[in-house]
Design a binder for these strands. Structure first.
Length: 313
DNA sequence: AATGCAGACAACCGCCCTAGC
DNA sequence: CGCTAGGGCGGTTGTCTGCAT
């Protein structure tokens, strides 16, 4: 038995809002506020709309200081870099962009930025790989496989690099040696207490990709240490039930890790950051291990942004 | 002028989380 | 402690519009 619907679907109006409905809703909220109850609100003001629909209309369109369309280049950069580090957390992105709603950002990403990025990638691929080869076939296979996944999976390290380049973002690949401490904490009912040491990994660059069946899929870009890459992944998988967690199994795991001695996992958010970070390192790890004053101004700026994002979460 | 198609974005759906009981 | 309702959120769908044929 599913949950009961929030309103009588047969008795509410759906589809585009009329100017009259907008005026009613806006006028009421500006005068009395929402009263903390969206479900009851439409009845109060005589709107034949679902409460959730009213909420959405207000938040995405009617409330003051909402900007529509015309994203600035600076906003493009912020969206792109946030997507790289946190994935499709639209509401968090919206918090970083005053006047923008999560819906707006999501639409903008899906219709403009994603295509710009993938279009460029396609062109570059055609230029770079004119001849058919085994490697190409493998890549094609992988591409087909990943096309069935969400956008998370479609974004690869090199694509993200290109996104940075096409948007004139500074490319940040860490050169610092990171000594990463391990600590454990109970999160979401999953204990990481056995995470003493993940062993010594010497990974120049690796990509680890999960598929929808939660079976680790591993691909490589040279130079890298495949064995160690796999080892790191399997350690994660075995110890913390890596698979099956929403944040991870729909993501592309793309990271560039230099001289990893162990890793730091205190929450799924940490894993997520590690996973998503195209800059090559987890900012929380970075926080513990790399002095902020050793970063370039650009790195520092990204770091600050990420810290704010973490706070918002 | 009619039709088809693609892009843009508004709106909806359904799941998850949480506060209150 | 379990249940429920409301709110929040990400993914998806629907609709409108402009352009090409």
């Amino acid at each position: 038995m599913g949950r009961s619907p929030c309103c009588d679907k047969t008795n509410v109006k759906r589809g585009p809002w009329s100017p009259e409905e907008d005026a009613k809703l806006k006028g009421y909220i500006e005068q009395y506020g929402t009263g903390g109850n969206w479900i009851a609100l439409p009845q109060k003001i005589g709107l034949r709309r679902c409460g959730k629909s009213c909420r959405l209309r207000w938040l995405n369109y009617l409330r003051p200081n909402i900007k529509h369309g015309g994203f600035a280049e600076e906003e493009d950069k912020i969206i792109c870099s946030l997507y790289m580090s946190i994935g499709s957390r639209w509401s968090i992105m919206a918090a970083q962009l005053p006047g923008r709603t999560d819906n707006d950002i999501k639409n903008y990403w899906n219709t403009k930025l994603k295509k710009r990025l993938l279009g460029k990638q396609r062109k570059d691929d055609q230029r770079a790989r004119p001849a058919s080869s085994l490697k190409q076939q493998m890549n094609k296979k992988r591409e087909n496989f990943m096309n069935t996944e969400s956008i998370h999976v479609n974004l690869h390290h090199h694509q993200l690099q290109q996104c940075q380049q096409s948007l004139a973002l500074p490319e940040i690949i860490p050169q610092q040696e990171g000594k990463l401490s391990v600590y454990s904490q109970q999160t979401n009912g999953n204990s990481f207490n056995n995470h003493n040491n993940l062993g010594s990994c010497d990974i120049s660059f690796h990509e680890v990709i999960t598929n929808s069946n939660d079976i680790p899929y591993y691909s490589s870009s040279s130079p890298f240490d495949e064995l160690n890459g796999m080892q790191l992944y399997n350690e994660l998988d075995n110890d913390v039930a890596f698979s099956g967690m929403d944040m991870v199994n729909r993501s592309t795991i793309t990271s560039s890790i230099t001289s990893l001695e162990s890793t730091s996992i205190s929450s799924w958010g940490d894993i997520n950051s590690l996973v998503y970070s195209p800059m090559g390192y987890n900012y929380k790890i970075c926080q513990q291990t790399i002095q902020q004053d050793s970063m370039t101004p650009e790195e520092s700026s990204y770091f600050r942004m990420q810290q704010e994002t973490v706070v918002l979460q």
